[in-house]
Design a protein around this nucleic acid. Structure first.
Length: 781
DNA sequence: TAACCTAATAGTCAA
DNA sequence: TGTTGACTATTAGGTTAG
């Protein structure tokens, strides 16, 4: 029987002394199915000393639990190598046998013993999460949890790269917890609301007051999940909060938590992920984390960013007040509405982000529920592992390496001042294209003398074989080809249709992964890390940009600025077009990215503001686009930029003065003055106690769990003490703007942000503060 | 002792 | 647990002027 199935979750179980791969998915009609494959066994590789291959294979083959040990031909960093492939009975035996095999005489190394069994199955059969084509399915009576459509396959499926959006059922989950002492403790504090929403528009709000016991509420929760039977479960920060809390709370009160298709609780899995067997649990926070444009990552801000729900339209309850709203029966409905807003936002966010998550899973090869929590390095590495398998290249083991660094890109000194009519010329995907063109890869680097024809990297002199193509190069070529395919397929569908959206997310995921290849090759933790590889990429990049600069100058174009892969030049259309044409002839794609009618540089690199010929305002690098400045300062700077570009410097000065006046008269909200900063480590590890660290300590004092990775929102108050740090308080502890230190916000936020742009025009602090003339102090300085 | 200087620390953005 | 380059605020810890 032939069948197409969209893979949702993959795991394995044991049948006697044999492993059984279990693939949960939906068929083309949206029916939930499981396919079992009993024809695959785990294995790893042993690298013997030269000449001892057969001897080692025989010794390994005699070991209990080993099914087969055979000598095979593989490659290691491009060089042919003889390895012993040791196949074992069940995945649980791999670790033990790996250690025993290591002690066999004449064994140099053991490789690929750290690859999870179901991932191994996917790599070896070139399976990616997505549509799978099964050509030899047999129905069986075996029940797999609550799924009744169970099949056994006689052969592994074939992965289809493109296909329609599957008919998935999904739900979102959000819990509220009683927390009178700050951060709740699952051993003590009950879950008071479980909010659920599904793709059919059903919303269920389970509130503790409507049940005889918390256990009854959990049972109702189990029953709803069973009835809805979602393929995908969305949460927001659910890997760090909801899932562990539910699991720990269920244990504490001895309640059942039956969320998986086996009827079991969520289990902690790789990358800090909580897995729900048979479904894909997706924590949307993981995807929002990667979006650099989204500065505030809490659900209310994110929902607003995506146009799902305005913050002004939702009930806003500070986390530490949740218990008060619960205790006060007059306010309890507000809390319930709050939970509803959160779960509905989460569901909609999930609907929007799911296509990208599916494509990122497909491209990286990681299961749908793991790809989010996996690091960029892990995503790229598994993608490479798939390619390496196809090329017969063995995966090196992970090793700790001492810190080392290498030279990066060129950044030109900008010409400060106002420029008119400037074109920005950009290299498209510069680093991937450099890697492709010069065949830069760990397996093409020449390490011992010349081997045929090669490319030599400028400045650093490292050499790369021209042929055969390397691991990275082949992969990059495939990514580019797949992207071309996705784009051409896309054009067959109306913009915004489900197929179009899915293909658009596919081409986006392919681009993201191609661009991540360079970062991966310079990552110390990479299996295939070779410093010379990363160093050569940037060396060629510098060379390329320098060449482009010279070519521009030769044509009489004035170069205003440049950074890594971009060049800002006077827009003389004919000359620029000719330049672009000439660089393209060199085999690198460049294009005019945008044209500014007015562009302003200060003396700083990586910072500029510009007015495009289309009338858009760009602000790059400045405080206005930074998440660690108050909204007040960011808004002022943004408006100053706009006025300077579209109106006049005088107007901008007037505007800044009016803002200062508003401040002095307390015409602002608390939200305007919150400063947000991320804690990159736990509070005790800091050497310098900066304001946000003190604010974090104040939160901890009140019982909050604040630590590494959390973002602290604080304000500067005037009644705290002499030192700035003393005056930094978490904004949730301040409810009156009269407590705010106005002078700090004027002198350290608004004025510097405004001056950053206005000082180009000779404006100084005194002008902004309305101090005309010279003060007595000026004579002394 | 206040004023001043500099290095170190820390976070965020550009590419 | 993707890279280097760059800017900026603030603290920490001194030295200096008076």
């Amino acid at each position: 029987m032939d069948k197409r199935i969209y893979l949702i979750d993959i795991t394995y179980g044991l049948v006697g002394n044999s492993p059984e791969i279990r693939m949960f998915g939906v068929d083309e009609d949206g029916r939930k199915v499981v396919v079992l494959d009993r024809g695959f066994r785990p294995y790893f590789y042993v690298i013997p000393e030269e000449g001892f291959e057969e001897q080692v294979a025989k010794a390994a083959g005699r070991m209990q639990g080993v099914v087969k040990a055979e000598v095979v031909d593989r490659r290691m960093f491009g060089k042919p190598i003889k390895a012993v492939k040791v196949t074992v009975t069940i995945p649980e035996k791999v670790r033990e046998l790996r250690d025993r095999v290591k002690s066999i005489q004449h064994v140099k190394d053991v490789l690929e013993a750290d690859i999870r069994f179901y991932i191994r199955y996917m790599i070896d059969n070139d399976i990616r999460p997505g549509w799978l084509m099964f050509s030899n399915l047999r129905p069986t009576d075996v029940k797999m949890g609550r799924v009744s459509n169970v099949y056994i396959t006689e052969e592994p499926p074939r992965s289809l790269s493109i296909g329609a959006m599957p008919k998935l059922s999904y739900m979102a989950l959000d819990i509220e917890v009683y927390n009178p002492r700050g951060t709740p403790d699952p051993r003590r504090d009950p879950v008071i609301i479980i909010a659920l929403a599904n793709h059919m528009g059903d919303v269920k709000l389970l509130t503790l007051d409507r049940y005889r016991s918390e256990r009854d509420m959990f049972n109702e929760f189990n029953a709803i999940v069973d009835e809805w039977d979602p393929d995908v479960v969305f949460g927001y920060n659910s890997n760090k909060f909801d899932m562990p809390y539910l699991v720990n709370r269920a244990n504490a009160i001895n309640a059942k938590l039956q969320l998986s298709r086996y009827g079991t609780p969520p289990e902690q899995s790789v990358y800090g992920h909580w897995s729900i067997i048979g479904r894909a649990h997706i924590d949307l926070y993981n995807f929002v984390e990667d979006m650099t444009d989204v500065k505030r990552k809490s659900l209310d801000y994110v929902a607003e960013y995506f146009g799902i729900m305005k913050r002004s339209e939702r009930v806003n309850i500070p986390g530490h007040r949740v218990y008060q709203y619960w205790d006060d029966e007059g306010k309890r409905d507000l809390l319930i509405k709050y939970a509803r807003d959160d779960v509905v936002s989460t569901l909609e966010l999930g609907r929007r982000l799911l296509p990208y998550a599916m494509q990122l899973a497909s491209v990286s090869g990681l299961p749908l529920d793991q790809v989010g929590p996996a690091s960029v390095g892990a995503r790229v590495e598994w993608m490479i592992m798939h390619e390496a398998y196809k090329m017969g290249e063995l995966a090196p083991n992970r090793v700790e390496r001492p810190y080392e660094t290498y030279r990066g890109a060129i950044v030109l000194e900008p010409k400060p001042g106002v420029h008119r009519n400037i074109a920005v010329i950009d290299f498209s995907s510069m680093y991937p294209n450099i890697m492709l063109k010069y065949n830069i890869s760990p397996d093409t680097l020449i390490t011992n003398g010349a081997e045929g024809d090669y490319y030599t990297a400028p400045e650093v002199g490292f050499k790369f074989r021209k042929s055969p193509r390397g691991l990275y190069t082949v992969l990059l070529q495939e990514l580019i080809e797949a992207r071309r395919e996705a784009k051409s397929e896309m054009s067959k569908y109306p913009e915004g249709s489900p197929e179009w959206v899915l293909l658009n997310e596919r081409q986006r995921a392919l681009k993201v992964m191609a661009n991540a290849m360079y970062g991966y090759c310079g990552w110390l933790g990479a299996r295939w890390y070779i410093r010379e590889v990363a160093e050569s990429v940037t060396a060629w990049g510098r060379h390329l940009l320098k060449t482009a600069i010279n070519m521009a100058k030769e044509r009489g174009l004035s170069v205003i600025y440049g950074d890594t892969d971009s060049l800002f030049v006077t827009y003389d259309k004919d000359k620029v077009d000719e330049l672009v044409g000439k660089i393209n002839e060199m085999g690198f794609e460049v294009k005019i990215d945008k044209v500014y009618s007015k562009l302003i540089f200060t003396e700083s690199k990586k910072r500029y503001i510009g007015l495009t010929v289309d009338g858009d305002i760009d602000i790059v690098g400045f405080e206005a686009v930074r998440g660690d400045w108050s909204e007040l300062a960011r808004n002022v700077q943004e408006r100053v930029a706009e006025l300077v570009l579209k109106s006049s410097v005088d107007e901008a000065v007037k505007y800044v003065r009016s803002v200062i006046d508003d401040l002095r008269n307390y015409r602002f909200t608390l939200d305007d003055v919150i400063i947000w900063k991320t804690l990159d480590k736990d509070v005790d590890e800091y050497k310098a106690l900066q304001p946000h660290v003190i604010a974090a300590k104040r939160l901890i004092e009140k019982g909050y769990m604040v630590g590494k990775g959390d973002t602290v929102g604080f304000v500067i108050v005037k009644d705290g003490g002499d030192k700035l740090t003393q005056k930094a308080y978490p904004y949730i502890f301040v409810d009156d703007v009269k407590r705010i230190d106005i002078d700090y916000y004027i002198e350290k936020q608004v004025v510097p942000a405004a001056l950053r742009i206005l000082e180009v025009f000779g404006i100084n602090e005194a002008t902004l503060l309305g101090k005309t003339g010279r003060s007595i102090l000026d004579y002394f300085s």
